[in-house]
Amino acid sequence: MGLEFDANKPIYLQLIHRISSEIVRGDKREGEKLPSVREYAVEVGVNTNTISRVYRELELLQIVTTKRGQGTFVTEDVNRLTRLREEMKQEQIKQFIMDMQEMGFSINEMLEGIMNNGSEGQ
């Protein structure tokens, strides 16, 4: 096992993003238990210090909660998860706009492209 990681970003940030995506997609539901630090470390192929940090940062972001002696769980706060979904959307859109502007596309061209692609995709 083990994941491939991007070279230009800290691994712990990539794992925070990965877990957040799984939650937004619904692969991990509110209140669901996350794997133990060691299990998840073996699964993704990083050391346990890194996973501890990932869980700690997710807890600071109030996306997960740690219950003493029981483990780490996705928050049951649905409002927080709705906000997370919005945050991840904004983050992706900002990145997309930045990349497109770098190549010289206008917002109107982007919108037109999205609409055309969107209708093809349905």
Binding site: M1, G2, R38, A41, V42, G45, V46, N47, T48
Partner: peptide
């Protein structure tokens, strides 16, 4: 590597 992750 897996052994290290699991057993350290």
């Amino acid at each position: 590597i897996n052994g290290i992750i699991k057993f350290i």
